[in-house]
Write a protein that binds this DNA or RNA. Structure first.
Lengths: 298, 298
DNA sequence: AGAAATATATCAGTTTATTTGATGATATAT
DNA sequence: ATATATCATCAAATAAACTGATATATTTCT
């Protein structure tokens, strides 16, 4: 078993050129080399592999069955080699190798994924590292310098932020929940008698408090998914993004609470750069794509 | 934009060796070259890429951030180069580049996939081309020489075949189907009043007829999936592999028909080699794996 | 059938990129 | 301070790859 390559990329390229250009002579012309250099490279390649890639039938060089397969694989190889070098070029131009993106869980996944897949198409190899947070986790990420772009509820002042997306959070509880049985509009006094499902802040520094209504009992969860699941199981009530509960509202498993006040409120998600003074080209592109996708989907 | 690689595999290999062995001198020793050759190759590499991969801090060569990324990618490249050459070696040893596998649709997909993924692990690059057929399509494939291994209902005599897997086909219809409303056991007279969903033979030569019961109306489909979907939509009744309808039977969307006779019958699937006199090593391995997987899952 | 044209293989000589060994520069360890 | 380890650079040596000419084989043309 070999452990290092003996065949050079040049040899594979010669092989490919012979096929693509229709012969040794044409390949020679294409590669700016003599016909005998092509012949030499090709025979050496086959000798090193111990296998015939071409059989010269009459005066035409034809692929063997094995040559066909190896040709295909070799193209992947040389393509990847070219891509690495192009990627290196982009790096030399200041393009980032990796972008760290932090997104608040309230931001719709489909928009995010659509933006990321668009970016992947033109990313030139730049990878995106995605982290999901809730509430002040986003601001923390900005401050702690572990990120490049943040999509979150608000940016600490001093960061370059743009309003991006409005999320409507509405108060819901399971259809059978006692709060729905009340005859009058629900007051905060009513709420305080029931379990409030709160999404825990994933931030660590300045805890923002979204559970501003005091409540006897509080069920704290760490993601929108778990909050939704808790509420769907009748554990309590809570505020969730409208787009995440629309299905349940339609099906009737959840119902919006008729609150005297605060039945819904709007949160604005902002997109911010963590290092405004030094934004790389790929980071800028990704941000632009995200904004575009959001704009098109409003 | 470059269109062909300038950096050689050797250069990448030198780069990797410097990191893996801890320095230029060690890499030189490992690669059986002088230290200055390493230094030359490395500086040329960086010059060609237009980017620094190593920064010499003190007397130690350390990866730059970009070097780290390109190191990882370059490993994929050199690994692939080695794999191609190993694959070529296997080809030279008579190993097949591609195996054509024809499988009757009645053979459970999970078994097939499990076998194929096992084979992929040890295939040394041999690819499997999979074709799905129903009924005599399998025999046709054997006869027409466009295949290596066949899993089908029966092999024409003269082929090397082993019994592989027993499929139980049961008669089913949608729960609300009129046939389920009958008070007595269903007779063929009853059946003939309803639509029979038949899986069409994908073979082209000798049409085998599985719809042996005459039926007023017949709905012909070309795959098990469409048959299942037709029956699930209440279009008619038909015989389907038990493992494909077990979920629906459990959920109650389909019900087995209480037939006077022939409510179920068993079909045996055989595995056959198309060219018994000349079976390649990879073909033999794949067949063995398929048999093993089936044996373990009975 | 024979001549001309096309296509790959091979050979001897040349070119060139890579390698070497020696030396230099610099940082770390004793 | 001195010794040691590490990478950079230079001129010279080397080996792999390349060239141009020629050989061999096949197809095409007349």
């Amino acid at each position: 078993m070999k452990t290092y390559p003996r065949v050079t990329l040049e040899q594979w390229r010669v092989f490919q050129a012979i096929i693509d250009k229709g012969g040794y002579a044409q390949a020679a012309q294409y590669l700016h080399r003599s016909q005998s250099a092509i012949s030499y490279a090709m025979s050496r390649l086959q000798q090193q592999l111990g296998i015939a890639l071409l059989k010269v039938e009459g005066r035409k060089a034809l692929l063997t069955e094995q040559g066909q397969i190896l040709l295909e694989r070799s193209r992947l190889l040389t393509d990847e080699a070219v891509e690495i070098e192009n990627f290196a070029y982009h790096l030399s131009q200041g393009r980032e190798a990796e972008i760290k993106l932090v997104v608040d869980a309230a931001f719709p996944k489909d928009l995010l994924m659509s933006a990321l897949s668009k970016f992947a198409n033109q990313s030139q190899g730049t990878r995106v590292q995605l982290r999901e947070v809730v509430l002040s986790g986003a601001s923390d990420a900005l401050l702690s310098d572990e990120t490049d772009i943040v999509i979150g509820v608000q940016a600490p002042s001093g960061f370059l932020s743009d309003p991006l997306y409005e999320v409507e959070l509405i108060a819901v509880a399971h259809t059978n929940h006692a709060l729905h049985k009340l005859k009058h509009k629900i007051t905060s006094a009513d709420l305080s008698k029931h379990m409030h499902v709160v999404i825990q802040d994933s931030g660590e520094k300045e805890k923002m408090d979204i559970g501003w209504l005091s409540s006897q009992d509080r069920w704290t969860v760490s993601s929108i998914d778990s909050a939704l699941s808790a509420i769907e199981h009748g554990l309590g009530y809570g505020w969730l993004p409208r787009y995440r509960v629309s299905e349940q509202l339609k099906q009737g498993s959840l119902k919006a609470l008729l609150l005297e006040q605060g039945a819904s409120y709007k949160a604005f998600l902002f997109i911010s750069f963590a290092h405004p003074q030094n934004i790389g080209p790929a980071t800028r592109e990704l941000a632009t794509i995200i904004k575009d996708v959001v704009k098109k989907n409003i």
